[in-house]
Design a protein around this nucleic acid. Structure first.
Lengths: 158, 158
DNA sequence: CCCGATCACTTGAAGCGTCAAGTAAAGTAA
DNA sequence: TTACTTTACTTGACGCTTCAAGTGATCGGG
């Protein structure tokens, strides 16, 4: 990369360590709550939530993958599991047979409705409530900048 | 949890979505760079880096697990792999045979030295450089608050 | 109309993390 | 000393993600 790399200053290192810790522990906390209370992973929740917010509770696999921040392959495996549990159905897009449409079943809808409040409460307790209103705005800006730096033009930089 | 959950406001939701995206994409970017350039995962790097900063390049497994933010089981598996690659050795603590000491070999030290600059450059490019000095301080505070909320009294809240 | 290219997705194998069970050393109490 | 508990770690099985290869459906050029 660089023969003489610029090491991190103390302030930068503090921020970096704080970020690393958060990066590891927050997903664990979110996955843990969902696993305990609903028996699903955070990614599965994102998939179900994405479906529940789509028109007709239906969306193409590729769009859903973007929405849930995952690869198409990962989504395909997960949707297979969700199908076995009766929460999602697959069907070919009538207009273009290459697309697969994922559809949220009634049972799937119930699952989201039953799971959402507890999850939101966890998000509040872990992220929103510990921060001031100003910090919430700062977090949004920081998150966007980092996401944009890491994956320029990915999904929805808002 | 709560019969009438407080949903997220628009500002809160924006921050939350930005955080989720970062939470998913930043680890991917860090792992990706290390995997490509050095053939190791970010966790493996943290283990090697933790060892390299310990006195005599030696540290107890349980302390190393805390330092690297991972479970003892995970660390044990990873150290087994690092041992096979010749970067780490294990030996029983002479004072208390229950403890296992992990020791960084000379090859392991070389690996860290060879890997660190590229990794630091990636951290800079992904996190430090896109942010202002003020944002870096904000990130540190936000990260600490969230980490503390999620895992009260964990490792080093600094 | 045909054939190759492209697109959207699926599948199977390999690797890593987690959980539960197991092992060995040290402490404790009779 | 012996037996029981605790501590620190290891191990194996299972589940999930990733990667590479494969399957159809559709498009575009001749």
């Amino acid at each position: 990369m660089d023969d003489q790399p610029r090491w991190l200053t103390d302030e930068e290192m503090e921020a970096w360590l704080a970020l690393i810790s958060m990066l590891i522990k927050l997903p664990q906390a979110l996955d843990g709550q969902l696993q305990r209370d609903a028996g699903i992973s955070h990614f599965e929740y994102q998939v179900l939530a994405g479906l529940s917010m789509s028109p007709d509770r239906t969306i193409r696999m590729s769009e859903l993958a973007q929405l849930a921040d995952g690869s198409l392959s990962r989504l395909s495996h997960v949707v297979s599991r969700l199908e076995k549990r009766g929460w999602v159905r697959r069907c070919a897009d009538p207009g273009d047979g290459r697309y697969t449409l994922a559809v949220l079943t009634d049972d799937g809808w119930e699952k989201v409705v039953a799971t959402a409040p507890g999850h939101v409460a966890t998000v509040r307790a872990s992220v929103i409530d510990p921060l001031t209103k100003a910090q919430i705005r700062q977090l949004r800006d920081i998150g966007r900048r980092i996401t944009e730096a890491v994956d320029p033009g990915g999904a929805c930089p808002g």
